[in-house]
Amino acid sequence: MGFALGGSIAWGIMYSPPEHHSADNHQAAEHTTEKENKNGFWEKAGEDPVAYFTLWLVGFTGVLAVSTIGLWIVTWRASKAQGRDMKASIDASKRAADIAHDAMIAGERAFVFATGVLAYWEIHKPTGQYHWRFRPNWENSGDTPTKNMTMHSECLLVPSQIMPGFNFDYPTNEIGTALLPPKTKAGGGMVPRFPAAAITPSDIVEIQNGQKLLYFWGWARYYDVFPGTPQHITRFCWRLLVTGDPFRYNPNSDPQNVQFSNIHHFEGNCADDECKEHGPNRPEAHDRAVVAFAP
Rank of each mutant, 00 (worst) to 15 (best):
G210W: 07
A271W: 06
G70F: 06
E19A: 14
E206D: 14
G107H: 12
A97P: 02
G83R: 10
P295H: 05
R135Y: 06
P136L: 01
R109T: 10
Y15I: 13
A51Y: 07
G188Q: 09
F216W: 05
A51G: 08
I175Q: 08
M149T: 08
T150Q: 14
L57T: 15
G268N: 02
F247A: 06
F236T: 01
D48I: 13
H264C: 07
H21A: 11
D287K: 07
P136D: 04
D91C: 01
Q129R: 14
G244T: 04
I99P: 00
G2F: 07
V191L: 00
D143F: 14
I69H: 09
A285T: 09
H20N: 08
E277A: 05
L240R: 01
I123A: 10
G40M: 03
T127E: 03
P201Q: 05
E154R: 05
G268V: 01
Y120Q: 13
A196C: 03
R77Q: 10
A65H: 01
T172W: 06
Y170L: 02
P201V: 04
F134E: 06
A29R: 14
L241I: 02
A119M: 10
G218H: 03
L213I: 15
G188W: 05
D102I: 13
P164A: 02
D224P: 01
G59V: 13
E19W: 05
V66I: 15
P145A: 01
E122H: 07
N25S: 07
G188N: 06
T234G: 00
V112Q: 02
Q256W: 09
M104A: 14
A285S: 15
R282Q: 11
E274W: 00
S253H: 10
K80L: 07
D24Q: 10
R109K: 15
E284Q: 13
R235K: 11
V205P: 00
N173R: 12
L71K: 06
G83L: 11
F260L: 04
Q129P: 00
S93E: 15
G165S: 04
V63C: 14
L214R: 03
R133I: 00
Y15E: 11
M149I: 05
T184W: 01
E30H: 12
A96L: 11
M190F: 04
L71W: 11
A106H: 11
H152R: 13
I204L: 10
Q129D: 11
G142D: 11
S141E: 12
K183H: 11
N167P: 04
I162W: 05
T229M: 11
I263M: 01
A81Y: 08
I199P: 05
R221F: 01
V242E: 02
A78K: 15
Y222I: 03
A51T: 15
T229G: 00
C237M: 07
F41H: 10
R282C: 00
A197S: 12
A186H: 13
L213D: 03
P255N: 09
T61G: 12
G12R: 12
A106N: 14
A196D: 15
A119Y: 04
A28H: 11
H31T: 14
R133G: 03
C155E: 11
E36R: 15
H152E: 12
S253C: 00
H232C: 05
E122T: 08
P251N: 03
A285G: 05
A178P: 00
V205L: 09
K38Y: 08
T127F: 01
E139H: 09
V225P: 00
Q231H: 00
P227W: 01
E267N: 04
L55S: 14
Y223G: 00
I69R: 09
A4M: 10
H21Q: 13
V290Q: 10
